[in-house]
Design a protein around this nucleic acid. Structure first.
Lengths: 144, 144
DNA sequence: TCCATTTTTAGAATCATTCCAATTCTGTTT
DNA sequence: AAACAGAATTGGAATGATTCTAAAAATGGA
């Protein structure tokens, strides 16, 4: 019998190895966290949530790991919010929306990413679109 | 005879007043700087360039002013780069490109801004698209 | 087991930004 | 012009996210 936990852990491990990243306990934990929490967490949120399970975990390790994952193209770095960086393990094309009043960051699905025509000689290997406004919940609060 | 300087200063003053911002010496200087330097500067760059002319200028004032300008919709806050915020006084639709090797941030003209279809109830009042890759100059260095 | 390399760690250091309380400036009323 | 109230500016301290550093721990061969 194969436990669900093992299945997830194997997917996580494979995804890391596919990108040449040695799957240490800490790296697995950060990657699994991002794959199972689609909340665009900050480094600090990840650290705080993982810390109870890995009491020796250091914030530096979380930062090291996130930087490595971003460098290798395994997760996306999101700068939709000035205060702190956000991370997203979903690499399918989608844009991010931030609500001005509650601060939530939501995924918005799109067919493909928009890459405008660039000046001659410029090459683009990544693009991000950020939309900012008011989410459905906050709009309702105002209208009722 | 009207000096060119006066013309610019008048445009700057009008743009501030149009948005209900009292045109103090410091605010005029920051706004004029942004309108005449299309380099997407950081608060620090603005402070350093303005300081020689306004020796009493404080960094807090530069931050206060930039925050006010962004709040009132007079300039754009650009978060294409994690280290520090960038500012842009051009409100015409355009997207930003950042070169991975030299760090330059360039404007790319577009007809209109892309705003993907949002989930029901979500309203968008601003959107930004960031493209990242290699600029023409850096691509040439590699290919020659 | 021993050794070399990689990874993790805690805490210090850095750096952008905000906060704070005091001062200066502005415009208005006597 | 003096007195005043409110707004803007100021320097420096405080904050908070991130990076750096040097030591300790883990890993994986020979």
């Amino acid at each position: 019998m194969i436990l669900k936990m093992d299945v997830i852990k194997n997917i996580v491990k494979e995804r890391l190895q596919l990108h040449g990243i040695k799957p240490s306990l800490q790296r697995m934990a950060v990657m699994e966290y991002l794959m199972t929490h689609r909340t665009h967490p900050t480094a600090d949120m990840i650290f705080n949530d993982l810390y109870p399970d890995i009491p020796t975990l250091s914030k530096a390790t979380v930062y090291n790991t996130l930087n490595l994952l971003v460098e290798r193209g395994v997760v996306r770095l999101i700068t939709i919010e000035e205060k702190s960086a956000r991370f997203d393990a979903c690499m399918d094309p989608h844009v991010h929306f931030r609500c001005r009043s509650c601060g939530a960051i939501l995924d918005v699905n799109v067919e493909a990413h928009w890459i405008p025509t660039m000046p001659d000689g410029v090459t683009v290997d990544m693009s991000e679109t950020y939309c900012i406004g008011h989410c459905a919940k906050c709009n309702n609060l105002v209208n009722n």
